[in-house]
Design a protein around this nucleic acid. Structure first.
Lengths: 353, 353
DNA sequence: CATTAGCACTCGCACACGTTGAGTGCTAAC
DNA sequence: GTTAGCACTCAACGTGTGCGAGTGCTAATG
């Protein structure tokens, strides 16, 4: 029975600090925490009996639970939520860690567009959980350059560079033996026709083209392929989700039995789900936290996501984040995700400069 | 006690068929198989007592074991090895399955160099295990084409196409504001200089270049980057190992507890190990099977690999294969791996035509 | 002499049972 | 409001027991 009825939302500062202590303790030990160990390790200046009363209150408010009568308390999703709300705006990553991460990004400054992979790897390492990241993808694709390279007599590699530096390669089987010279001429025509265009523009331009003549057919053939590739790039909500450190999650005690984790991984392979999720956070630049059942899918009820989008809302956006058990170190996760997304913002800005 | 001492290597045909039956049964049920269930389901025309005698012989030969005295038999690594040797040359994938796989490959005929991904996916699906594949990588890289595209004022995307169609992209920060015109001119110089060259040749050519003049510095700067990228591509034994269907392995009862599997996954992330392994089979085009402890690393003693290389030994080779528990359906695995590697051979030949 | 029926034996597994200990909730005193 | 005290609960652990699948051995058989 709750001794003093309280309105949810506000919380006695002492109760709040005890909630924090429970979360802190549970996150590190992974075992339910009891009143005794709390006063022992945190010593609130009160006895264990008092702490017990407060714990009972917190449970009545739905912030803690009991696995069974004679066990300690563990936080509920709502408990984590309350905790996260109370810290999410104030967390700042310590300068030492900031420096370490910056250093890692410096190492590969000019290694193609692999930054998002590095972001996932960095987040995974810094949190000992799984790191996730997608490449920044523009709202609508603009073609920047088209190139055609002969691979063999009847095979050519079609290379499409998009405005932000993203790149697509398509192998094209040719109708007959074709020399690099013709391919180059066709490439020039296509390049002039499509460079700077969106998919829709490019389609209109291609429709007006003269499909006859010595290389007209070739241009038409290649143009169709370019268009398909551009549309494909355009329509995918997320191009690729790169993840790293899934092994860390496997090592967590809640996933000792692999079937739970298997379902989580299966959910992560569901593009529709991830696409929708990432889309929902792509407006804001704030760090978003999804805790356990808040994720929606049944399979995800044992894990939490800490996500942030990066990029320029009107142009290109991507997502970085962390996935771990609901029992995860939220302050650390929020801090690193915020910092890395900031870093990615800088990089995107640098590209668009 | 073995009733009749036998030399290892040859085996009574009846004993052999019983070994097969044990493997067959164990692979499907995952539980030790006893003499009774054997005669029940396979009825060899003898009683269970006789089967028991033969089982004892097979155990004495090291092909079977006992988890404990009152349990049925399970195959040892040596037992699987014997079985695999006896079938490896005769397994042919049923035409129906051949057709299904061919069909899948037909669907994406012109989707860039993603074939190896499809190979992994197909193998995973066909065997309900993990599928592995690497892209075909040439012994020594030959540059086919170099292109430079301006991304922003001080940022350019350097695109290197290799002879077999492989592609590398490097973002380059420029010393000062540079127009596409200059970049294009530099690209032409580099293209003429390096196209058709190996890394070593390209290095020599680049050393002789005139680093002065209006675009000389630019060429030099970009050239260094190209060289680094080519060397990088050259030196990596395997570029990327794509895997699919790891979830299937997670579902196997031997990996119900996730720690075993975690170690396997960790081993798979060890590039040095995989590189050496893949290198060791890259000479031959035969299907190679590595069973349990044969793999070497302690972490891999519970899994088997069925691998085959594809490509043209002198030029470009890659690897496709399957990873599963030692208790895996070897005939099916061998059949699909052989067939898919054959398919990949065709594709590589097509590229080099 | 290979095969087989019969039988004692082994040992993991499932289940029941008592013990232990951490932790709770309640009450009465401060 | 806080606290000491205490009865109570329940998972975890170790032990004991019966069950059953399966073996290995022996002696009989065609």
């Amino acid at each position: 029975m709750a001794r003093r009825p309280r309105s949810s939302g506000s919380l006695d500062p002492r109760a709040q600090s005890i909630l924090r202590a429970v979360i802190d303790e549970y996150v590190t030990t992974a075992t339910p925490v009891g009143s005794n160990s709390l006063v022992e390790r945190y010593g609130f200046g009160v006895s264990s009996a008092t702490v017990r009363n407060i714990l009972a209150d917190l449970e009545a408010s739905g912030l803690l639970t009991h696995p069974h009568t004679s066990a300690g308390r563990i936080p509920t999703d709502a408990g984590y939520r309350f905790f996260v709300e109370s810290i999410v705006d104030s967390v700042i990553l310590p300068p030492v860690e900031q420096l370490m991460i910056r250093h890692q990004f410096g190492q590969v400054q000019h290694a193609s567009e692999q930054w998002f992979r590095l972001a996932a790897t960095t987040l995974a390492a810094a949190n000992r959980t799984a790191g996730l990241a997608t490449a920044a993808k523009p709202r609508s694709a603009h073609v920047r350059r088209i190139d055609v390279v002969s691979i063999s007599e009847r095979l050519a590699s079609l290379i499409i560079v998009f405005r932000e530096g993203a790149l697509r390669q398509v192998l094209v089987t040719l109708a007959g033996p074709t020399e690099q010279g013709d391919l180059t001429r066709a490439a020039v025509v296509l390049d002039e026709l499509m460079a700077g265009r969106t998919a829709a523009d490019a389609e209109r331009a291609l429709a007006r083209i003269d499909g006859t003549g010595p290389i007209g057919g070739l241009v038409q053939h290649l143009g169709d392929r370019v268009l398909a590739a551009v549309r494909d790039y355009d329509s995918a909500v997320i191009e690729e989700v790169f993840s790293d450190g899934l092994l860390h999650v496997m090592a967590e005690p809640e996933f000792e039995r692999s079937d739970k984790l298997r379902r989580v991984f299966a959910a992560l392979e569901n593009r529709a789900y991830l696409g929708q999720l990432f889309d929902s956070i792509s407006g804001t630049n704030r760090v978003q936290v999804f805790i356990g059942a808040e994720n929606g899918p049944e399979e995800m009820r044992d894990v939490s996501l800490v996500l942030a989008s990066y990029g320029e809302p009107g142009r290109a956006v991507g997502v970085v984040g962390v996935l771990g058990p609901t029992r995860m170190a939220y302050p650390q996760a929020i801090g690193t995700v915020r910092f890395v997304s900031g870093l990615m913002n800088e990089l995107v800005a640098h590209i668009h400069a």
